[in-house]
Design a protein around this nucleic acid. Sequence first.
DNA 1: TTTCCTCGTGAAAAAGCTGTGAACTCTCGC
DNA 2: GCGAGAGTTCACAGCTTTTTCACGAGGAAA
Lengths: 265, 265
Amino acid sequence: MNSPQAIRLAVIDDDSGFVTVLNKRTEAAGWQQRTFAGAIPPEELIAMKLNALLVDLSVLGDDAWGYLEQVCGMLPDLGVIVCTGRSTVAQRVRGLRLGADDWITKPCHPEEALARIEAVSRRRRRARPRIEAGPVVAGELEIRSDRFEAFVSGASLGLTRREFELLQMLADARGKVLEREAIYQRIWGYAMAHGDRSVDVFIRKLRQKLEKRSAGWHYIHTHFGVGYRFEPEPLAGVAVEQAARVGPGDARPAPSPASSELVAS
Amino acid sequence: MNSPQAIRLAVIDDDSGFVTVLNKRTEAAGWQQRTFAGAIPPEELIAMKLNALLVDLSVLGDDAWGYLEQVCGMLPDLGVIVCTGRSTVAQRVRGLRLGADDWITKPCHPEEALARIEAVSRRRRRARPRIEAGPVVAGELEIRSDRFEAFVSGASLGLTRREFELLQMLADARGKVLEREAIYQRIWGYAMAHGDRSVDVFIRKLRQKLEKRSAGWHYIHTHFGVGYRFEPEPLAGVAVEQAARVGPGDARPAPSPASSELVAS
DNA sequence: TTTCCTCGTGAAAAAGCTGTGAACTCTCGC
DNA sequence: GCGAGAGTTCACAGCTTTTTCACGAGGAAA
C-alpha cells in the first residue's frame, strides 16, 4: 500500500536546519517541496496546487491564528500540519479546531513528520480513485474524458477545459443535485467566495453549447437555492406536454423520476 | 462551532480512568461513544457505522500491528487514531504508514484527543461525502436527500430548500418532538429571535404540500407550547377517528421526552 | 367561563437567486 | 506588441423564496 504518489508540499518555516533535513527526505521520497520563510498569500498557495502544507506558527507573527484559519477555510482540501515549538493543550486544540489536520511538536524526527504529512494527504487521495475510462453516454451526448471533449453524433461541442470538467462532474453524478459550493470546490480547487457566479456562468455556456448541438434534449436542471442536476431528458413538444404526460414518451432510463418537478429549464 | 456534527466513535482501551473522562467529554459534545476493552472484529466495526476509532495498541496484544493494518484496510473511510503509551519514532511511523490517521501519546489531555478525533473526522467527511443515506421512506413519502426533494409515488412535492431541510430534520427525528428553538437553531444557523414565526410558517407550507400529494396521511403533529413531531399516520375514516385518536397519536402533550432528546448545538 | 397565550392562515413586503449580455483581465502563440 | 481565446466580474431584470404582519381560532390555567 506504500505507493504514495508524489506529494506536493509547501513548508513555511525559517528553521533552516529542520527544513534542510526535511527537504532531503522529501526529495528522496520523490515529493515536490517548496519552502518559504514567512506567510504566503493563500492565493499563491492555491496556485501551487498543493497536497499538504507544513507550517511553523512562530514564523507567522501576530496573526498566526488568523492566517491558519484563513488558509484552512480557503483550501478545505489542503492537508495542514502545524509543526511548532512548545505549545499548550489549549493552543493545539485551537489549531486543530481552526482546521489544522495535525500538530507536531518540535523538535521532531523528520521521518515522523513525513509519515504524518503522508497520513494527512492519504485521506485526500483515497477519496478520488476515479480511474474511469470508458466514454459516458447520456441522451444524444457522448462524453469522452480521453479527449476532454463531448460529442453529439460525432460533432464536437467545442468545450473548453473548465466547461468540460463541469460537464463531466455533473454527468458523473447523474441524477444527483450538486451544490454550487461543492462544484466550485472540486473544479476550482478551493472554497467558493460568497457571491461568486462563476459556476452559473459556466453552466450557461455549457447549456448554450449543448443546445446548439443537441436541441430537443434537456440536460442540466436548476434546483433553486441549491445547485444543478444532470439528467438527459428528451423535450416533448409543448403541445404534447399537457396530454402526453401520462401516455407516450417517458422512455427514460432514470429510476423513479418525477413528473411534476418544477425545476426550471 | 462550525459543524459540530455528531461523531460516532468507538474506543478500544482498558484504561478505565481515561475512558471515563473521555466519555464524559464526548457525551457533552453530543457524540456517540462505544467502548471496548479488547480487539473487535472489523466486521463489527463496520456494522457500527463509525466515523472514528480511538485505539490503544497495548490492549491489542501480539498482533496489534496486524489488527491495525486489517482495520485500516477494511474500513478505508474510518478515521483511526492510535492513543497509546510511550512509543518510539519508528513505531509511530509504522502505525501511520499502516493507515492510522493520527497517533497520540498517553498521557494526553482528553480535550486534545477530542480535537484530534474531530480533525480526522472532518477530513474524512469532506473527502467522502458520497456515501449518503438512501432515501428515507415514511408513510407514502419518500425523502431523497440526493435530490433535496420529497416524492409521493414518484411525484415531487416541489419543496424549496428550507422546506426540505425542515422536513428532513423532522423526519430524521421521527417520533421525537423538536422544539422550535432547536429547529430554528439548526436550520437557520443562529438563535431564534423572540416572537419569530418562521418555523410555524414553514410547517404550514410543508403541510400544504404534503396534503396536496398525500392526503389521507398525517405527518406533522403539533405539540402545543413545545414544537412539532414527525410521525406518518394514515387517517382512518372519520368514524374511527375518535377511538383511534387516543391510541397511537396525540395521546399526551408529552412534556418529558422533548427537551432531553434534542440534538443540542 | 374568563383571560392570556400559542398556533394556523393569507397576503404583502423584503430579500435572495439565477439567467444574461457584456466589459475586463490574463495567457499564449505569432 | 498584437490578437484570439478562456476565464472572471459586473450590473440588471425577472422570478422565487423568506420574512413579516395582522387576525382569529384553539388551548390551557384560574
